[in-house]
Design a binder for these strands. Structure first.
Length: 523
RNA sequence: GGCGGGGUAGCUCAGGUGGUUAGAGCGCACGGCUCAUAAUCGUGAGGUCGCGGGUUCGAGCCCCGCCCCCGCUACCA
């Protein structure tokens, strides 16, 4: 079984409703996965939900329900619908509460225990009784009044207690050197470069062992430690394992090897450390390969600030898709933001790009081309005759658009891939204006030339439909249905071959095309 | 404080190893065209490249100092 290109998203913590930040991650991973599939490889996208942990438990109880019912409802009402909203084509969806996950996590834990990577120790932390949880040093502030001189919980302003808990620890510290060596030997393991720097400097500063269990005395919403059922597994340890429990770890070695190691694990930069430090160390401990790449994308900024619910800048994805559609959502976030950088979102920018680039650029190009073939050739794809320099230039730009996009995607530079493709959109609009097919149509003597010009234009559209399919699947399917269905399914058109000129056959009927990106009236 | 990223046209951003008049898209102004979603094409205006020094024949790119913004500095997920 040949290895598939395996892409993952983080599994989303189900405490909240999805916002465009979650959707952004999903779309990026989906575009990467679809791209590799369109290129002719087999590819696999995994996403899912992270459902254990104290916060989920507490939220559920706060809503007068139990955690299972609570997460069931959120998954069904919020998270699965999100994938529909933004048109994500995932091959699997894992929930950490599923039996297949629990069983595999326990197997993994046992494997690490047997290999000597887990030991029992005591965890000492600053426990806030008010919050009912351990606090980081950074969550504490200097006390005042009766607590002058003490460190207190920032929320409750009361001193925290030093509590000891007997926990199981993962010997993370033992992997410090191997991790550094791995970063050294695999410069693109963590991307972008800035993320890599942070990770390397973090590991260089020294790693402590990781407490990977929690006593049930505190809460019990999690996966039992297999050899000690008075403890459950620390949520992150459980969550990270989804990337292999979903694909057969412990149950289906063949499937596991057909996918692992993952090719790209897309994560937000806030959870980079878990994925670029703890996760590979866990895998090393189990004798498995780390993923080939962990890519940390940036924040979406609204009004110059990181989006947040409390500041009312959290935007639900369907607020955007209801107006502009899923393709525009996908296009906008992939094109307007350098993948890996932070990016500012604004309705004005979205609207402007939709109008200028999608409606007036790509959409109108498709309209004018299809309309002229219909009008001047009764919807038969015309014969191309002798190619002139202008026609050859279109062919060249098309080939460059393909190779440029492929090179960019190999670096996971999604925005550059789209920019490379867009050169063909601009070239074609320019070409049509310059060649003036409407003038050629007036004289019978220039009819052959007219055919060549329109053939060239529609072939260009064919290339665009293939190249843009991973980003805008719906619009490209529509376009393909109008101009390319005689060549077979759009999904079978390989990106690598897309730049080969002359695939559409003269005489083939094309069909009507509704506006791909209808104008959105000003609100 | 330490480490990392960034401060370039009104806006969003490009600008390998320093080299002719600093670029793109959008927006704006003017002109052309009419196939098309009042779409398209062309031309133009617009910048002391955060501030101050320095190296160099020559610096947005190198060095020093300073100012501002952002991220990381671990076990809430």
């Amino acid at each position: 079984m040949p290895k598939s290109f395996y892409v993952t998203t983080p599994i989303f913590y189900v405490n909240d409703a999805p916002h465009i930040g979650h959707a952004y991650t999903e779309v990026a991973a989906d575009v990467i996965t679809r791209w590799h599939r369109q290129r002719g490889d087999s590819s696999f996208l995994l996403t899912g939900t992270d459902e254990h942990g104290e916060k989920v438990l507490r939220t559920a109880l706060g809503n007068n329900t139990d955690p299972k019912a609570w997460t069931d409802r959120l998954v069904k009402d919020s998270w699965l619908p999100l994938l529909e909203t933004i048109d994500v084509d995932n091959q699997d969806f894992i929930r950490t509460t599923e039996e297949r996950h629990k069983v595999a996590v326990q197997k993994f834990l046992k494997q690490l225990l047997d290999a000597g990577h887990i030991y029992q120790g005591s965890f000492e932390g600053n426990y806030c009784v008010g919050c009912e949880e351990y606090k980081n040093e950074s969550d504490l502030i200097d006390g005042s009044g009766e607590f002058e001189g003490q460190r207190v919980c920032a929320i409750h302003s009361k001193p925290v207690e030093q509590l000891n808990e007997n926990n199981y620890f993962f010997k993370l510290s033992h992997f410090q050197d191997r991790l550094l060596e791995h970063y050294e030997k695999n410069p693109t393991f963590v991307q972008p470069e800035s993320a890599r720097n942070e990770v390397v400097s973090f590991v260089r500063s020294g790693l402590s062992d990781l407490s990977i269990s929690r006593s049930k005395e505190r809460f019990d919403w999690g996966i039992d430690i297999p050899w000690d059922t008075s403890h459950i597994t620390y949520v992150w340890f459980d969550a990270l394992l989804n990337y292999i429990t979903a694909i057969g770890y412990g149950t289906d070695e063949e499937k596991l090897h057909s996918l692992w190691p993952a090719d790209v694990q897309v994560v937000g930069k806030d959870i980079l450390r878990f994925h670029a430090v703890i996760w590979p160390a866990m895998l090393m401990a189990a004798g498995m390969e780390p993923p080939k790449q962990v890519f940390g994308h940036g924040w979406l900024l609204v009004g110059g600030e990181k989006m947040s619910k409390s500041k009312l800048t959290g935007i639900a994805p369907n607020e955007i898709t209801d107006v502009f559609g899923s393709d525009a959502f996908r296009y906008y976030f992939m094109k307007a933001i350098g993948f890996g950088s932070d990016g500012s979102f604004s309705w004005e920018d979205l609207s402007a790009r939709y109008t200028a680039e999608l409606a007036n650029g790509f959409g109108n190009l498709a309209s004018r081309t299809v309309a002229m073939v219909a009008r001047y050739f009764d919807s038969d794809i015309p014969q191309a005759n002798e190619y002139q320099p202008a026609d050859k230039q279109v062919q060249e730009v098309a080939a460059q658009a393909v190779s440029g996009a492929e090179a960019a995607m190999d670096r996971v530079a999604i925005h550059e891939a789209i920019a490379s493709t867009w050169k063909l959109v601009d070239e074609l609009n320019n070409y049509i204006t310059t060649q003036e097919p409407w003038v050629l149509a007036k004289e019978e003597s220039t009819r052959e030339r007219l055919g060549t010009v329109l053939y060239t234009s529609i072939e260009g559209l064919r290339v665009l439909a293939v190249l843009l399919a991973p980003v805008m699947p719906k619009a490209c399917e529509k376009l393909w249905a109008a101009i390319g269905s005689a060549l077979g399914e759009l999904s079978n058109q390989s990106i690598s071959e897309a730049g080969v000129w002359g695939q559409l056959t003269a005489g083939t009927k094309i069909s009507e095309l509704e506006a791909l990106f209808p104008r959105v009236e000003e609100k």
